[in-house]
Design a protein around this nucleic acid. Structure first.
Lengths: 130, 130, 130, 130
DNA sequence: GTGGTCTAGACCACA
DNA sequence: GTGGTCTAGACCACT
């Protein structure tokens, strides 16, 4: 289920974060679902437990998961309430950078919009298996 | 003209690259236009010359500019000849990550599409280099 | 009567301790009152009996309660005999940390003092055990 | 200047955070001041660089400091704008716990208020040496 | 069993 | 030089 690429330039802990967020969007990970323990996830992904721990801590900071002492980590039952303006701003800035990059690679606006639609269909497609 | 933010988490040399690409898209930097020398650019932006140098080297690798020893750097007159499949793949991958992030921040597809349109209008408003 | 929050970052056994202390301050738990057994309390709070046991042991160490083998645990009839200087020191140290934190969150001294008054009115409203 | 206690039950990285916040309140660390590098601070405190790094990262998250790639960390020039409701709530909750604890140790409200005044005079006393 | 903290030591990107 | 990431391995508190 998880796609971790050790050789990627993207940090492993970020990849873990993104994977979990994506599974959440697809509704494969549902509210209150238990995540594998830090050690288990680490052995599943063949990475160091500290790396998984860092990912989980950041996910908790973002209110995606909730960690309970001595019990483990669980998907947050509350549908994300607090919106972090900084994070939105960061994401939009990155979106801009990528549009510039794609434009330089010959993509026109239409092609980008089409790709966005594809991506959104992909990452949100789980919507009915609740 | 340049917008460098030393506090950003984006490397300065990447910011320089993106600025030049954006100016090119807007047709403010035209084919064969001369770029400021590494030292001049460095003092303009108040950054280390090594940083500018790294940006120029990467731009040349991407065939955005051409550097002639002893003469300086110039915008490539050949508009986008080679298309680097790796770079396209990377950009699409990042696009995907950002869609996930924005979805988690409460954006639906429509809002993302609208933002893309805004951005494209902004970065391509020179309008004639398509 | 009890307020246990399993998601809090405060250990459950500490929450139990504080709840009992608060009930004692409010004079709801009076000297010689019998506490629920470890098992009963555990089932009341839906927590592990070991957790309750740990709380009771610590309460006994602090002379808040007295446990009689085979009889159960009771509120200590002797009101606050021994004063543990270490505990006072610890509490004052924590008080300091929180003042720093609140100052960083924009609270001035006056606001902190006001909050303290509110809290004390709340936790001591039984009013007669002073 | 720094007071780190390896034997304390408080994590080292939190102690570092609190020390820096306190120095900031006292105006000993002023906006834009450079902090010792991670490695330097680590050797000053005789702790592992990772521990200092963790403290710095948390401080940046709280907008107390700003870290610039390849340059180091600096006190945030902006007087703290964003207020984190969660952090305020947490702090008030802890304040409540301590009031209960102190009440149990025989402190009346007046004594607590006096201590708060002492603490605030202490931690904010640097206010004029700007 | 769970996660949290810390150390020692390594490698990398950036300026 | 700077900070960021990762590993391996240890210890601790909590349930």
């Amino acid at each position: 289920m998880f796609q971790i690429n050790i050789m990627s330039d993207q940090p492993i802990y970020e990849q873990i974060i993104n994977n979990i967020k994506e599974l959440s969007l697809k509704n494969i990970l549902k509210p209150n679902d238990k995540l594998p323990s830090v050690r288990k996830m680490a052995s599943l992904l063949s990475v160091n437990p500290n790396t998984v721990s860092k990912a989980y801590q950041e996910l908790e900071r973002q209110e995606v998961i909730i960690t309970v002492r001595g019990r483990g980590s669980f998907m947050n039952p509350d549908t994300d309430i607090s919106v972090d303006k900084n994070r939105v701003g960061e994401a939009v800035k990155k979106l801009r950078e990528i549009c510039i990059e794609l434009a330089h690679l010959g993509w026109n606006e239409e092609k980008i919009l089409k790709e966005i639609k594809n991506i959104n269909q992909e990452i949100r497609k789980g919507g009915k298996n609740d």
